[in-house]
Each structure stands twice: as structure tokens, then as C-alpha cells.
Computed example of a mutant assay.
Amino acid sequence: MPDSPTLPDLIDMQIRTTGPMSVATYMGLCLTHPHKGYYKGADPLGAAGDFITAPEISQMFGELVGFFVVNLWQQMGQPKACTLLELGPGRGTLMADMLRVACRAEGFRDALDLRLFETNPALIAEQNARLEAYDPNWIQGFDTVGDGPLLVVANEFFDALPIRQFVRTTQGWHERVVGLLEGRRAFGLSPTPLPPSVMPDAVADAAPNAIYEAALAGTEVMSRLAHTVSTQGGAILAIDYGYAMTQTGETLQGIRRHAYADVLASPGDTDLSAHVDFNALGDAAGKAGLTVHPLVSQARFLDRLGIGDRAKALGLANPGAAADIAAARRRLTAPDQMGDLFKAFCAASPGLVPPGFSP
């Protein structure tokens, strides 16, 4: 019996059959192909995987996000039923740390309706092992989030959603595509220029060779969640690397085994991501009726929530680990580490005051 075609074979076959594909289509196949996509394979996290996220660096990150969540629940009057939804929960580490703190608040555990949006079978198993006591439910779409207030947490989720790329030429804007050149995958341009009116005002007059990345999938997810929150109450917290205002610049990158990798070389075996346009997410949330709070750096967000005091307390309780705790805090908050590159975004029901987003 012949071996089934690999994901690179399937992608090349589709290009030969139907022509070059958009960058968004290529990313979608690489990351979420039903059987061979990157996020359908083994656990990509940790030292043995391709990258390490903030919750894996220190429990402090999740504990402070747990305080953020329970504070908003209290501001909403401690509703008897409240859905907490995490997008892309990884190994469940962030949520486990969050709930260890949040469930100390009287009534929160009884109100909790925990939902997780995840597609990786290996990670779902790890999430279940860590979170089974909280009766989690895994969802495949955003129409099954309950009827009560909704609190959404998304750490390094939006950067992994497919983007489209457009290149400014002397003839106007053209979409960037993935095709085959002498049998090898290569970038090219669609021959048909786009009407100038379809480009955001912020980039419409960009210089030749400028690249604009449109995260249409991300804004669609934000729009759908924001409309639910607008109707039912709640907030959306997204922490990711990105930029505050819509701009040009190529940020699509591949990561494999903690090193940069060619985004076209190994479909399905390489993590693909792009910086998040938080301005576009804010526009989507604002149109749904939410209050979009000023974007802050991850460092400022964690500092305002008390990471300094938490690190000190952990160091006193575990003197043998004090140096590791201090190093973890630095990695999360130092400007040359994750502190400035990563941003915290919050859109919430009018009247809520999300902790960490104001002095």
C-alpha cells in the first residue's frame, strides 16, 4: 500500500492544479490541515518543542491573569454563571495557574463555566490532565459560549491566525501568493492590482515594495467574540507580540526548534506566525460596542498587577529558587526580553475597569 502524500506534496499538488495560493491559504494548510497541520501534530511547546510561552516561563504570569479575571467577575457583581474561555490553551498551564488564584474568591468556582478552544489532540490531553477538576468543555466554534457574561483570555493566539500579504508596486497593490518556481515553492505576486479603496488609509500611499499584512481571520474572530461580549457582558484579554497602529512591514516568520526557519521549506513541521495588528483588533471590538482600553506593554501590564510583589513573596517562600524566580520575572518584563515586544490588549463592556490597563 503506497504511503499517503505528505503535506508538502498536497500543497504542491494544489498549486499545480489550481494555481498559486494566497499566503493565508498557505498558512491555514500548514498550521491547521485536518490531518497533517502543525497544530494537529505533537506538542510544540517547551524545550523539546519549537517555542516557549510566558505561562511556561513562570507561574507568576498565570496567577496575575487569574487576578485580572476574578477582579472583572467581581466588578460585574459576581454573576452566578460566567463563562471563562481560553483561545489556544497550550498545555493548560496558564489556565491552571489562573484558576488556582481565581477560585480562592468566594463563589467563583461555582459560577465557573470553563471552555477551551483547541485543535491539537496532544495538547487537549494535557489540558484535560491539568484542568479536569474544573469540568472543562472543548469547543470548535464561538457559538457555544453560554448565555451569561463571557471572559476571554488569548495568549499568543492571534499571531498564529492566517494573514494575507499585499505588496505595493509602481502599478498599485498586488496580493502576494505562494507558487512553484522550477519545482520549488516560492513567493510571487498576483498579476491583478487591487483597487486603492480596499487598502486601509494608513498604508494606502506606502512606498513601492512596501508589504502590508491583513489579519482578516483575526479581526473576524475578534468581531464575533466582541459581539457576544457586547450582548452578554464581559471582556476580552489578548496578549501577543505586535504593533499598536496599522502599518506596513513584513513580519511573517517560521520557528522550528527555537530557531528561525524558512516559512516555505517544511510545511506542517514549522510554526508560522505574524505580528498582531492591535489597531485592527480594536476597530473590530469597538464596532461591536465594547470599550477598547489603551494598549500596554506586557511589562507594564504585569507590573501594574503586582509581579514585583509576587516575585518577592515567591523568593522568600522558596529561597533556593530565588535566582530562577528573578530570572523569570526579568524574561517576562525586561525591555530586551518579552517586556516591550509583547503587548496586552483589552476590550470590555462599558463601565468595567480592567486591572493593569490604568495606573
Rank of each mutant, 00 (worst) to 15 (best):
M1C: 09
D3W: 01
D3L: 08
S4D: 11
P5Y: 13
T6I: 01
I11H: 13
M13C: 14
Q14H: 08
R16M: 09
P20C: 05
S22E: 01
T25R: 15
H33L: 11
P34W: 04
D50A: 04
F51D: 06
Q59I: 02
Q59C: 09
G62N: 12
E63M: 12
G66I: 00
N71C: 15
L72F: 10
Q74R: 15
G77I: 13
L84C: 06
E86V: 12
L87G: 04
A96F: 05
A96H: 11
A96Q: 15
D97A: 01
M98T: 06
A102V: 12
R104Y: 03
A105V: 11
R109I: 03
D110H: 15
L114V: 03
A125T: 14
A125W: 07
A125Q: 14
E126I: 07
Q127Y: 08
Q127G: 07
N128R: 13
L131G: 06
E132A: 15
Y134V: 09
G141F: 00
G148W: 00
L150Y: 02
V152R: 11
N155G: 09
E156K: 11
A160K: 08
A160G: 05
F166A: 01
R168M: 15
T169R: 14
T170Q: 13
G172E: 06
R176L: 07
L181W: 11
T192C: 03
L194I: 07
S197F: 07
A204S: 08
P208F: 00
A214E: 07
A217Y: 03
E220R: 15
E220Y: 03
S223T: 12
R224S: 14
T228C: 10
Q232P: 00
L237R: 08
Y241G: 05
Y243W: 14
A244D: 12
G249K: 02
Q253C: 05
R257W: 06
H258Y: 03
P267D: 01
D269R: 14
L272E: 01
L272R: 00
S273M: 08
V276S: 07
V276N: 06
L281C: 08
A284F: 10
G286Y: 07
K287W: 08
A288C: 02
G289C: 04
L290A: 01
L290Y: 04
T291D: 13
H293A: 00
L295N: 06
V296A: 02
D303V: 07
G306H: 06
G306F: 05
D309V: 03
A311S: 13
L316Y: 09
N318C: 12
L341S: 11
K343I: 10
A347T: 10
P350W: 03
P350E: 01
L352K: 12
L352Q: 06
G356E: 04
